[in-house]
Design a binder for these strands. Structure first.
Length: 397
DNA sequence: TTTCCACGGGAAGTTAAGGCGG
DNA sequence: CCGCCTTAACTTCCCGTGGAAA
């Protein structure tokens, strides 16, 4: 036990184990809720690996917070353990493609995570060519493993398909002699497959799974499993059901549901309330949304925000419309620029900025055509709550 | 059918900022 | 510290698109 220092308050009146509500906290085995079927199917697809045979390559789709990464990691870990029991040396690597967007960065991450002290291969952080990273990766794999799984999370954030091509053909091309590779791609864009190279598509998508959003009762269970984060009896009975209902109605995103729960606790903390009350949930949701959105647009350029600002104003003025066309947004955008004393960018550039927002799922684009001499055009619809966007944009100045 | 029009987006070029070896 | 190279952000030019009107 750690010695207690009287100077600091150690008795948090609300939380006892707040880590349980942090985003990177992974539940233990058996605490994964409502994904039994998915886990079984995933396990089935990679099952050959425990005998040292090639596992199927997998593509997992599903919106954020549906447990994709969680299940992929969970199944991979169990596979590695099970294979060990059969005398097969297995391992898995996890790559967050949002962080390693280029081919080189991704290979580097894979190679260094498989590399151990027992190999005589050195994988430097940088300084060698992509081809060299591959060569070293193949050597590490052949020397140390019978079979490996490579999880590529947020695979749609990759700049190109090159690494998928390399990984999927490593065996055929004779780069690897002993080791087998299984690739687990994770994407939250259902349409990701459409723009994949045909050759990659056929080999990578041997098995596909779609993870549905969680429903209210599952979200409730997920939060219930983290009740230990709070001091006993502090959490009012209505809080979790209310948060679950709210989260299920909007997105079915477990991560957001847990965020809501944490913020509700923080609101109780900061207002000095003794208990976390059901009434805190609404505010907690708003804070969760605001924080998440702030994070999403953190580091974006001023003009990127002006464009968003323009679309937000339009959405607030005419709620319920199915979107606004590019030129309407551009006109208002120019106005926003003038108010801010900034020179406006070209229409061409604004089109690209809108596309970037669409990529981040901040807005949704749809093509339309028709009208006299109007040809085809794009409509843009804000996916976020306009009030949240406005709040973030306003105090971000 | 052809013409017309506003729009979409590819290609190539410019500029400023930042990292890197010497 | 300097020259060299890469990258991000943005522009300019221009061709393709698709339905309505001629």
């Amino acid at each position: 036990m750690v010695e207690t220092d009287e100077l600091f308050i150690r008795d948090d009146p609300i939380f006892v184990n707040k880590e349980l509500l942090e985003i990177n906290h992974l539940p233990d085995e058996g605490r994964i809720v409502g994904r039994d079927e998915e886990i079984k199917l995933l396990a089935n697809a990679v099952n050959p690996a425990i005998f040292g045979q090639s596992p199927s390559n997998i593509l997992i789709y599903g919106k954020t917070g549906t447990g994709k990464s969680l299940c992929a990691k969970h199944v991979s870990q169990r596979l590695v353990d099970a294979a060990g029991g059969e005398g097969v040396t297995a391992a898995f690597a996890y790559v967050d493609c949002a962080q390693d967007t280029t081919e080189t960065q991704a290979v580097q991450t894979i190679a260094s995570s498989f590399n151990g002290p027992e190999t005589d291969v050195n994988v430097p952080d940088k300084g060698i060519s992509t081809a060299t990273y591959y060569k070293r990766l193949w050597r590490i794999l052949d020397e140390s493993y019978d079979v490996v799984l490579i999880i590529l999370d947020e695979i749609d954030k990759l700049a190109d398909d090159a690494i998928l091509m390399q990984l999927s053909r490593a065996g055929e091309a004779g780069k690897l002699t002993d080791c087998k590779i299984g690739v687990v791609g994770i994407s939250n864009k259902i349409r990701y497959k459409d723009r994949m190279d045909e050759r990659v598509k056929s080999s990578l998508c041997e098995r596909e799974f779609v993870f549905p959003p969680y429903d209210a009762s599952q979200l409730g269970e997920i939060m219930e499993a983290r009740r230990d984060a709070f001091r006993e009896g502090v959490l009012d009975g209505g809080v979790i059901p209310r948060a679950a209902a709210l989260a299920a109605r909007e997105h079915g995103d477990a991560r957001k549901a847990i965020d809501i729960l944490r913020y509700a606790g923080e609101i109780a903390q900061s207002t000095g309330a003794e208990r976390v009350q059901e009434g805190f949930v609404t505010d907690a949701r708003k804070r969760a949304e605001t924080d998440r959105f702030r994070e999403l647009i953190r580091g974006s350029t001023p003009h990127s925000r002006y464009v968003l600002h323009a679309l937000t104003v339009l959405s607030l003025n005419e709620p319920g419309t199915d979107g606004f066309r590019t030129t309407a947004i551009y006109d208002l955008y120019e106005e926003v620029c003038r108010q801010d004393g900034a020179e406006s960018l070209s229409l061409r550039r604004v089109r690209d900025l809108l596309k970037e927002h669409a990529f981040l799922d901040i807005i949704e684009q749809s093509r339309h055509s028709g009208g006299s001499a109007e040809g085809s055009y794009t409509r843009h619809r804000l996916l976020e709550d306009p009030d949240v966007v406005r709040d973030v944009l306003v105090d971000e100045v």
